[in-house]
């Protein structure tokens, strides 16, 4: 319980840090922190495989990619003045977010929002069990995921190559 509260507060703090950092590199680092905390929460939720994937894919791959692009483009901070028409949009966005949170809060604190869990005991969530599930029940979506990644790879390559050709 205490652990959850600590982790939750630090996760929110990291997220807010990402949101309000002026420097994009800082944002990325706050995001890594956030991902790591969420990975820890996964561990407490008895999901070790997902926690590891979170660390390797998100923190390891995705954030590295972000940092790489930020530094490649030198886009730590935006140059030039801010765009117009931001004020009412900010207020609208803030208002909507507030509405969203209030909605969730009202549901959660009504008490009967979520039916109590059935007597589902602790299940086997080991990577082996998850792997079996993936390759048995979800083998077709898994393969489709592979195709999706392939498409992403080809897309990225095409995007960066075609530009060079256009320049020639």
């Amino acid at each position: 319980m205490v652990l959850f509260i600590i982790l939750a507060i630090s996760a929110v703090a990291a997220a807010l840090g990402m949101l309000f950092s002026r420097n994009a590199v800082h944002s990325a680092l706050f995001l890594v922190l956030n991902f790591a905390i969420v990975a820890a929460l996964y561990l407490t939720l008895n999901a070790p495989f997902i926690a590891m994937v979170q660390i390797t894919v998100y923190a390891g791959a995705i954030i590295v990619l972000f940092l790489f692009v930020i530094m490649l483009l030198g886009a730590e901070q935006l140059r030039g003045v801010a765009g117009d028409g931001g004020v009412w949009q900010r207020w609208l966005a803030g208002g909507l977010t507030a509405v969203l949170l209030i909605s969730f809060a009202s549901i959660l604190f009504q008490g009967n929002a979520i039916t109590p869990a059935s007597a589902a005991g602790v299940i086997d969530t080991s990577p082996a069990a998850l792997g079996l599930r993936l390759f048995e029940a979800y083998v077709f979506p898994f393969e489709v995921t592979g195709v999706l990644l392939l498409a992403a790879i080809i897309g990225v390559v095409v995007l960066s190559i075609s530009k060079k050709r256009g320049q020639q």
Partner: peptide, 10 residues
């Protein structure tokens, strides 16, 4: 975790 179902993790 809450429902004891592995599909969520998948």
């Amino acid at each position: 975790r809450y429902l004891g179902d592995l599909d969520g993790q998948v």
